[in-house]
């Protein structure tokens, strides 16, 4: 059985249709990339998959482990194994970082019928994962994302992914706002999380991220549809020729 199956997905925000029939299947252990110009529906796809309010699915289905997630709230989908690394992670003043991470991890544990994680053990676990991503203790003590630089916010997203161990991770423009060094650290963090158990959908505007996180398949999104699919060389083709022309293939 495939991990994630997107079938003829149509979605709209208010009266505006954005996705017009997306078909995409991701198996365990696979990394797929979605590339597309601005306004092609990339971020909408990530929000529709993760269940954000206001994004209405009008046709089609999304199956995670063979089960439709359409009737599930965002938090239920997350506990079922879906994870979205945000393009713009939000600041949560007044919400302590450690309390937030622990609430997220415990929510999954409770759902799985497991004991909640012990506080001391949890701190050790977070520190170990944070070290891999070059996240300092001081950052962990601050409220979520408050006062973080762009690069720190993205690293914090990957830290959450490492702690939550999702089966299906969606990375929405994780490269945006990162300089070359930060891009390298974040990509290394993501690569460490590649696993035969986990699927990844890497959404990006630019090919450069895919030099670091090498995908098994690349899909081009234009006008709310996948207009072309191929292996990693397709990304290089886009780099060379741009998106113009690809849309016409639809």
């Amino acid at each position: 059985m495939s991990l994630l199956e997107i079938k003829n997905l149509h979605a709209r925000i208010g009266d505006t249709g954005i996705l017009h029939g997306i078909d995409l299947t991701i198996g365990r252990g696979e990394v797929h990339a979605i590339m597309g110009p601005n306004g092609s529906g990339k971020s909408t796809l990530s929000y529709v998959l993760s269940g954000r309010d206001g994004y209405e699915v009008t046709e089609g289905d999304i199956l995670l482990d063979g089960e439709s997630v359409l009737e599930m709230e965002a938090d239920e989908r997350a506990r079922a194994g879906m994870f979205l690394a945000f393009q713009y992670p939000v600041e949560l003043p007044g919400v302590g970082g450690m309390a937030f991470l622990r609430a997220a991890v415990n929510a999954r544990k409770r759902d799985a019928g497991k004991d909640e994680v012990d506080q001391l053990e949890f701190v050790k676990m977070v520190r170990a994962e944070a070290k891999n991503l070059g996240i300092k203790d001081d950052m962990l003590k601050r409220p979520v994302n408050v006062g973080f630089s762009g690069g720190e916010k993205k690293r914090y997203e990957i830290l959450q992914m490492a702690l939550l161990k999702p089966s299906m991770a969606i990375l929405d423009e994780t490269d945006s706002g990162l300089d070359v060094d930060a891009l390298k650290i974040v990509s290394e963090g993501v690569n460490l999380l590649r696993s035969v158990e986990r699927g990844m959908l890497v959404i990006t505007h630019y090919q450069r991220l895919l030099n670091h996180i090498v995908p098994d398949q690349v899909h081009i999104l234009a006008g709310g549809r996948i207009v072309k699919s191929g292996d990693k060389t397709l990304a290089l083709e886009v780099e060379e020729n741009g998106y113009s022309g690809l849309g016409d293939a639809a």
């Binding site: 709230e73 938090d75 997350a78 506990r79 992670p89 609430a103 929510a107 939550l164």
Partner: peptide, 8 residues
């Protein structure tokens, strides 16, 4: 949504 997307 950010909190819910983490399973909370």
């Amino acid at each position: 949504f950010y909190l819910k997307s983490r399973g909370i």
